[in-house]
Design a protein around this nucleic acid. Structure first.
Lengths: 267, 267
DNA sequence: CAGTGGTCTAGACCACACT
DNA sequence: GTGTGGTCTAGACCACTGC
C-alpha cells in the first residue's frame, strides 16, 4: 500500500492522507477523502494529463499514487462516471469520455422523429452558413463570462434530416480557446461538432442547460427551414460548460417540430 | 450476521444467498446480489409495505433480513436513492420519497420565470375546469396500456402564476386505480396533485417522459391562456410511470412561454 | 447516550477482454 | 494467463440526529 510508482515521489508531492480528511486545515468543512480524490482526478482531466478517449491509470495505480485504498478511488471514479466524465469498461479499463464515439454522439441533441426508428433515419446533413469573428454583444458576453467587446466567433448553420431542414442555429464561442476556427474547418469536418472541439481545440463539453420556448418563425428562419413565416418553432437556447463549470458555448437554435419532437426524461 | 428478526423467519422464506447470485437457476444471465436486493426492496415499495414518507428499516436490519452484508444493502439503497425512490437522511434513516414535501414539490414541473427569483413568485393558482369519466380513446388507451373503451378519467385544469394563466392541461388517468376521483376532490385539495395521488389513491409517480413541440394556440387554448389565437405555445405531452414502469397518467399541456421557459439540464 | 447513515480499509473472489 | 473493472464481506471509525 505504501509504494507510489507514479509521478509523485514516495513521500512528498502526493497529497498526504493520514486517517481522515487532508485539507481540513482551515475550514471546518468536512470533505470526504473520495471527494478530494475526485477533485484531484478532475484536475488532471482539466490539465490534459489524460485526453478524451485515453485510458486512465487503473484503480490500483491511482490508489497507490494518492495513497488511499482502491475502494476509495473506486468511489471517486464511480461519481465521475455517473457524471459522464469517465467511462468504465469492464476488463479493459477506465477511459476519458468523448463526444467522438458512435454511442455517445449527439448526446445533447434531444430532437427525435415522431415516428419510425428512433435510432437513425439518415445521418444529419449539416451546412455551415457562416463563421464570423466579431466583438461580443453584452448578453452573449455575460453568458460566456467574458467582457462586452471581447473577441467571439459566431457560427450559423442548418441541420437537415433526409433532405428536410429541421434545425437552424447560431453558435457563439469565446475567441481565445477557439482561435483558428474557420468556416472551412467546420465544413470539412464530418462527425459531431463537439468531437471537433475536442480534437482541434482541446475543449470538452461536459454539461449544458437549455431554455426552451415556443416562438413564431421570422422571415429568415422560415426560409431556411422551408416553412411559412409565422409557423410555430421551438426556440432552444443552450449554454454548454466545460470541466470547471466554465461556460464555453452559447447556442441559439430554432427547431421544426411538425414531424419531430424534443424528448425529455423526468425523474 | 445470522439472526433475522424481521418478517422472514431465520432459515426459510428469506431469499437464501450462498456465495453468489441466487436466482441464477435457469438463465445464465448473471445478476449481482445488490441488484436482487434492489428488486426485493422495490417489491416491498410496490406492495405498500412502506408508504411514501415512511422510514424504512435500517441498513443493518435489512442486511439481516436478506442475509447479506450491510455494504450490499447499502449499494442497493444507493441506487434507489439516485433514482429518487428513496431519500437518505444522515442520522435519521432512509425514507420513501414523496411528492408531498416542500423540497420535492413540483419536481416534474420545468416551467420557470425568465426573470427574478427562480424560487417562487407566488404559489401556483390552480383551477379545475372539468373532471369526467369516459371511455378511453384508442391513442390514450395505447399509451396507458389499457384497452380502447376502458374507463378513464379526464381532467382539465388551468394553472396561473400571479394572476396570469400559464398552463392549460388535460389529464387522462386509468379508471381503476383512480376510482372515486371527482372534481370536488381535486378542487378542495391544496398542494401538488401527485401528492394527492399518493395519499388518496396510493399511486406514486416515479418517472416521466415528455414530448415537446411548438404549436399555434387554437381558440379554446387562446381564451383560457389569455393570448391571441395563433400565438405560439409549447405543447408538452407527458407520460408518467409508477413503480413497475406502469404508465399511470397521460398529460397534455399547453404552456405560455412569453415570460417563462422550459428548463432542461443535459449531461 | 444510542441509533442511523457515511467513510475507509483490506482482502477475497468473479466477470470480462486481450494476447 | 494476466490485468482490468465488478462484487461482496467484515470490521472500524466518523458525523449527524434526537432522546
Amino acid at each position: 500500500m505504501a509504494t507510489s510508482p507514479l509521478p509523485p515521489p514516495p513521500d512528498t508531492a502526493a497529497p498526504d492522507v493520514g486517517t481522515q480528511a487532508v485539507f481540513e486545515n482551515t475550514a471546518p468543512a468536512f470533505s470526504p477523502l473520495y471527494q478530494q480524490i475526485k477533485t484531484l482526478i478532475l484536475r488532471s482531466l482539466q490539465a490534459g494529463e489524460w485526453k478524451p478517449g485515453d485510458m486512465i491509470p487503473s484503480e490500483f495505480d491511482l490508489a497507490a499514487r494518492f495513497r488511499v485504498s482502491q475502494g476509495t478511488v473506486r468511489k471517486a471514479i464511480d461519481e465521475l462516471a455517473t457524471d459522464n466524465l469517465l467511462v468504465r469498461r469492464q476488463g479493459k479499463g477506465t477511459f476519458v469520455a468523448t463526444h467522438a464515439e458512435a454511442h455517445t454522439q449527439y448526446r445533447f441533441l434531444r430532437l427525435l422523429p415522431d415516428l419510425g426508428t428512433l435510432e437513425d433515419q439518415g445521418r444529419a446533413e449539416r451546412q455551415i452558413i457562416e463563421c464570423r469573428r466579431l466583438r461580443a454583444p453584452a448578453e452573449v458576453a455575460r453568458q460566456l463570462a467574458l467582457r462586452t467587446g471581447d473577441a467571439v466567433l459566431q457560427v450559423k448553420r442548418v441541420l437537415a434530416f433526409g433532405g428536410t431542414p429541421a434545425i437552424v442555429e447560431e453558435l457563439w464561442l469565446p475567441g481565445g480557446p477557439f482561435k483558428g476556427l474557420t468556416l472551412e474547418t467546420l465544413s470539412d469536418d464530418q462527425g459531431p461538432m463537439y468531437a471537433l472541439f475536442e480534437t482541434q481545440f482541446g475543449v470538452r463539453m461536459v454539461r449544458a442547460v437549455e431554455k426552451i420556448k415556443a416562438v413564431s418563425a421570422d422571415e429568415d428562419a422560415a426560409a431556411l427551414l422551408e416553412v411559412s413565416a409565422g409557423s410555430p418553432l421551438l426556440s432552444v437556447e443552450r449554454l454548454a460548460f466545460t470541466y470547471n463549470d466554465e461556460p464555453m458555448e452559447l447556442r441559439r437554435g430554432l427547431y421544426r417540430t411538425d414531424a419531430r419532437h424534443y424528448r425529455n426524461e423526468l425523474s
